[in-house]
Design a protein around this nucleic acid. Structure first.
Length: 949
RNA sequence: GCCGAAAUGGUGGAAUGGUAGACACGAGGGACUUAAAAUCCCUUGGCCAUUACGGCUGUGUGGGUUCGAGUCCCACUUUCGGUACCA
């Protein structure tokens, strides 16, 4: 008996695909392109579990479907190969990260190959490959040599800015910048080289800046926020402090508005667009200047609530603000110093976790330009130096933080909105009618009155007044920060930068890439320099234009090279462009390739990258778009966020202090401890006792209290992880059921976007289905059992229903329902006893995106010589979908009662008459009169009744 | 706190405002078999009824719109994501 032998079939076709280069693609201007892309994986040491391929399978189905529709489909894959785990492993074992990374990549590749993807492996990229990071370095240099022009909203060569300085200084400048500088052409020309370099850093898109970081002196490295808990490092428990450090940064904030606007042009889920909008955090407000009482000095605050000008009762500065020194009076100096010391000792983390109300009075006052009142100036950590101007006006009645502060320090609270009760808490809502602005008892100070206006109107009126009276300006602020672009790590892209007299210089473009040097230790140096400080060959010979030994520094023209490396997102920001032309050694990609492939039509990946990779990539692409390298402003037209596959853990229950395990149903009668048990020795929650005893030595002598002769395990949905013993490996599934079954089942589990648990038990259904498909084509002896008769109308209807459903479902990414549709169709064919060749062939094509190996085999068996990949997606003929008759439900007052059948196309009135005339209707209509009848063709005849009098 | 998504049988999940629970798993019963596996058939939301038929109830909670609501509107509860002194 010849059964569905998936092992041989899958091996055969996977080999043939390689031999015949089935998935090789090239630019073909005669065909329309379609670019499908998955977020490339970081090859971790743990290998793939069953959750990882979910998105790859979904996009592979889409890619294959598009190909069957005649598109020239680009569906590449590669590796995000730089990353922390490999480096940590290197530090612990001395194993070079490259070795581990390559091992892991090979393992991934092996696992991926078994699942039957249509990737064009010829286009593989690895971020750690010098031929790849050449272009990461190149892009960085271009960013370094660019500034952002606000007027033309695009990146421009830095030379243009320099000539502007030469001619006019900063006059008439409207560009993105770290801080607003002001100098004349003469002043610019008077600057020395170092000063000019420092000044330009204020404008470059890739620039060197001073920023606050978590610094751990004992570990000699910067730590990310999640590597610090309660002020100490997670690894080692060493204290962590806030430190200002020089770092390379990318001026992502310059693109804030374009990043925001672009969201309206792309086909992403509303939730992820919203996340990005929040992250960019555009806020329209007003900057207002306050005069420091008794001086000529002023300072500027930012507010979105210009309507609350008359409710200001104090001012607050960020502790890091440069104003602090200026406004602190002699009497308050000691207090202020004490407070600043306290704040300095607080880590970022502590400030985030507990929002203690703390602060100190500076001794100075600011004059409110609307009331003339003197408001005390305080310092508090709740005001952040990095947002707005680092100074605020406090309106405790209408801001909860100001309110808490006012209550704590006994400062006045003036309500400004009619009916707002501020006795217990502030009234933060931006609605209501403004009052007290100005207060009735106040001496008139300015001619602005907001009383009687709505909040919205009051804000607009105040803005107008501020601009008209030169008190400040209308300003848009963004929450989006510039990205810190350097890491004190080894395993990352080196910077193509060297330092000449402390001034960063770009290595000439023709000399790229600068290769990551060898080191003997992956830790920081003894003097606290990053790991690259251990490299002996890490100096730049400017004359011979090559990397040379460090010992030559200080001789002639040899200079130290940057010791920082780039962060993870550097390599992953433009990889989708490189896939278009992966072997090009002259450019990131050719113009031809860029013009043909344009951008990614469909991008699949996790939503956890919403505020990381997906922002950086969009930024990077926009920059390259400004350079004319990328031809589309947005890199990813449509985005699908696949859900996580969770683990389904199993538990056994050990009676305390014994080696006896009690079955789930009886566990409440004992004092038990639940213990995770390997899900691979449990079937349908029933424990394999033998396998359990063999699982670990201590369970060798285990005894069991069973129910109905079985040991039933408890279960829970948790993250899939080794420690929960709920990891299911795709190789194991492929070995037992085949890749096609795995693909089908992963899709059948539920909607791609949704998180759902993996439960191996359900896979049988999909496997059985494929066996049934096999036996539709072949008899018991393995002979093709199809007939060449004309297909019947019923067969054709079943097929075309399937074509319609599957085509729609794939377009909508609703793969679980298309799998169900396959099963329904097969059942229909079985009940029709259909073995029609024409129908069966079409079924094989429809299934090809889901089960490519099986479809290839069936396609070949039905006498085709080409790959099923080059078949044509079946044409839908609506004609076959028409039923001869339609079944409709007769309902009375919305309640369905009995079915009736009518020939297709029956007149509405005929239907109504027939329904009312039906003897069964009498039961419901007696004693009632008919108000109206609603006919939903093919579904429902609803008779609306009311009692007859 | 704010933003977003969700809540349907024992389980995963279906349902353009029109017979809720498609499809599958599991469970129960049966056929075949010495037996097991495999395969096939029947039942399977709950409650009541059953020699016929059937009836009631049911999509997190409470309201509303509608002839008709899982679906639309309002309020709430819970869960999961994201984010957080952003003025």
């Amino acid at each position: 008996m010849m059964e569905y032998n998936f092992r041989d079939i899958e091996k055969k076709w996977q080999q043939r695909w390689v031999e015949q280069k089935t998935y090789r693609v090239s630019e073909d201007t005669k065909r329309k392109k379609f670019y499908v892309l998955n977020m490339f994986p970081y090859p971790s040491g743990a290998g793939l579990h069953v959750g990882h391929p979910l998105g790859y399978i979904a996009s592979d189905i889409y890619a294959r479907y598009k190909r069957l529709q005649g598109f020239n489909v680009l569906n590449p894959m590669g590796y995000d190969a730089y990353g922390l785990p490999a480096e940590q492993y290197a530090i612990q074992t001395g194993q070079h990260p490259e070795v581990t990374t390559v091992e892991n990549i090979n393992r991934y590749r092996e696992q991926l190959d078994k699942i039957g993807f249509s990737f064009d492996w010829n286009r593989e990229v690895r971020t750690c490959d010098p031929a790849y990071y050449h272009w990461t370095q190149w892009a960085f240099q271009r960013m370094f040599n660019s500034f952002y022009c606000n007027k033309c909203q695009s990146a421009q060569p830095i030379e243009r800015l320099i000539s502007h300085f030469e001619e006019k200084g900063t006059e008439g400048l409207d560009v993105a910048q770290t801080e607003e500088l002001s100098f004349t052409a003469a002043e610019w020309r008077a600057m020395d080289e170092k000063q000019k370099s420092d000044t330009l850093m204020n404008y470059r898109i890739a620039f060197m800046g001073e920023t606050m970081v978590n610094w751990c002196p004992k570990l000699g490295t910067v730590l990310a926020n999640d590597e610090v808990v309660d002020g100490v490092s997670v690894r080692g428990g060493y204290p962590v402090e806030q430190k200002k450090m020089r770092q390379w940064c990318l001026r992502v904030s310059a693109y804030a508005q374009r990043l925001l606007d672009g969201l309206d042009t792309i086909d992403w889920s509303d939730s992820i667009k919203e996340t990005q909008r929040n992250w960019i955090g555009r806020s329209e407000g007003t900057e207002v200047r306050f005069q420091i009482a008794g001086t000529d000095e002023t300072f500027t605050i930012f507010t979105t609530r210009a309507d609350t000008m008359f409710g200001v009762t104090f001012m607050v500065l960020a502790p890091e603000s440069e104003l602090v020194d200026k406004v602190t009076t002699a009497e308050q100096k000691a207090e202020v110093e004490k407070y600043l010391t306290y704040v300095k000792g607080r880590t970022e983390r502590e400030r985030q976790i507990d929002h203690k109300v703390t602060g100190v009075f500076t001794g100075s006052y600011a004059i409110n330009p609307f009331t003339g009142e003197k408001n005390p100036i305080w310092i508090s950590e709740y005001v952040l130096a990095g947002y707005g101007t680092g100074a605020i006006m406090a309106v405790p009645a209408h801001d909860s933080r100001d309110y808490a502060f006012a209550r704590h320090f006994g400062l006045p609270i003036i309500p400004l909105i009619e009916g707002a009760d501020v006795s217990e808490e502030s009234y933060d809502a931006k609605e209501g009618i403004v009052t007290n602005s100005p207060r009735k008892d106040a001496t008139p100070y300015c001619d602005l009155s907001l009383n009687g206006l709505t909040v919205k109107e009051a804000i607009a009126a105040t803005k107008k007044y501020v601009e008209g009276h030169n008190l400040g300006r209308v300003k848009v602020n963004y929450r989006l920060r510039d990205a810190i672009f350097s890491r004190q790590r080894y395993w990352g892209e080196p910077f193509p930068v060297y330092y000449k007299n402390g001034i960063p210089q770009m290595v000439p473009e023709e000399c790229l890439p600068i290769m990551l040097p060898e080191v003997d230790k992956f830790l920081p140096t003894e003097t606290g320099e990053p790991p690259l400080g251990n490299a002996t060959r890490w100096a730049w010979d400017e004359v011979n234009r090559k990397i040379v030994d460090n010992t030559l520094i200080d001789q002639k023209a040899v200079f130290p090279i940057e010791l920082y490396t780039m962060p993870g997102f550097a390599g992953s920001s433009a990889y989708y462009l490189r896939y278009m032309d992966p072997h090009n050694d002259q450019a990131l990609l050719s113009t031809e390739a860029a013009n043909y492939w344009q951008n990614v039509d469909l991008y699949v990946g996790g939503s956890e990258h919403a505020t990381g990779h997906l922002i950086y990539s969009r930024f990077w692409n926009k920059f390259l778009f400004d350079l004319g390298v990328s031809v589309k402003e947005e890199p990813f037209q449509k985005l699908i966020n696949q859900g996580m596959i969770q683990g389904r853990s199993n538990f056994v229950y050990r009676i305390k202090d014994t080696n006896t395990f009690v079955s789930y149903g009886l566990k409440d009668q004992y004092d038990v401890t639940p213990i995770h048990v390997d899900v691979n020795i449990v079937t349908n929650d029933q424990l394999d006792l033998k396998a359990f005893k063999a699982w670990r030595p201590e369970y060798n002598t285990a005894e069991f209290i069973l129910e109905d002769g079985k040991y039933i395990c408890g279960w829970a949905i948790e993250k899939m992880s080794k420690s929960m013993y709920n990891v299911v490996n795709p190789d194991m599934i492929v070995e037992r059921f085949g890749a096609d079954t795995l693909r089908l089942y992963e899709m059948f589990l539920g909607p791609v976007e949704q998180s759902k648990p993996w439960d191996t038990n359900g896979i049988d259904g999909c496997h059985r289905f494929l066996k049934k498909v096999w036996s539709l084509f072949f008899d018991k002896d393995g002979k093709l059992a199809l007939t060449d008769a004309e297909p019947s109308r019923d067969e054709l209807r079943s097929l075309h229903k399937l074509i319609k459903k599957v085509s729609e479902d794939i377009e909508n990414f609703s793969f679980n329902t298309s799998v169900a549709a396959f099963m329904i169709c097969l059942n229909e064919l079985a009940s029709l006893k259909s073995r029609n060749r024409a129908i069966a062939e079409q079924l094989a094509v429809l299934m090809a995106p889901f089960t490519p190996h099986l479809s290839e085999e069936l396609w070949e068996a039905t006498g085709h010589e080409t790959s099923v990949c080059d078949a044509q997606w079946p044409q839908l003929c609506e004609d076959y979908l028409k039923e001869d008759s339609m079944k409709m439900m007769v309902a009375f007052n919305g309640k369905a009662r009995f079915p009736m059948e009518f020939p297709v196309g029956t007149e509405q009135q005929t239907i109504i008459d027939a329904a009312l005339a039906d003897p069964q209707s009498k039961k419901w209509t007696e004693g009632f009169s008919v108000v109206k009848v609603i006919v939903v063709p093919g579904k429902m005849i609803n008779v609306v009744l009311k009692p007859a009098k």
